[in-house]
Amino acid sequence: MLFRNLIRSDSFTVDFLFSRKKKPKEDAIIDHHDLTLEDFSYEEITANYRPTFVDPGRKTVFTAAIGLETNRHEIRRCSTKEY
């Protein structure tokens, strides 16, 4: 690890920034693969993932819809007042 010669403080906490060299990949299976939406089926997505869509707004910091079903999905919001 290398010290980056950077110390930050907000008068309450102190951060010391360090860096380390990136380890070489032994198994570069993911390299050079470009996935697109067409590479997944709807059934694969619903079985393996939980899609979340986030929309920043004016009256809310964000609105998030979780899930793919049109009649049953979660909606979470954080208003600017709560923020």
Rank of each mutant, 00 (worst) to 15 (best):
A64C: 04
S79Q: 05
I66E: 00
F12P: 00
L6C: 05
D31F: 08
T63S: 06
A28M: 11
I7D: 05
F62S: 08
L35V: 04
I30F: 12
K81W: 02
D10Y: 01
A47Y: 06
E43Q: 07
I7T: 12
C78L: 15
N5S: 09
P56E: 08
T60Q: 09
F40Y: 13
I45Y: 01
R72I: 03
S9K: 01
L37E: 14
S79D: 03
D39V: 06
H73F: 11
E44G: 02
I75G: 06
T36L: 07
F40D: 05
H32D: 14
R20P: 01
D39P: 03
Y83C: 06
L17H: 14
K21D: 14
R76T: 11
T52A: 14
K59M: 14
E44Y: 04
R8T: 13
T36S: 10
T80K: 15
P51H: 08
F53R: 02
L6K: 10
R4K: 11
T70Y: 08
H33A: 05
R50E: 09
F53L: 06
T46R: 04
T13C: 11
T13W: 07
D39E: 06
Y49F: 15
V54H: 02
S79E: 03
T80E: 06
R76N: 04
F40N: 07
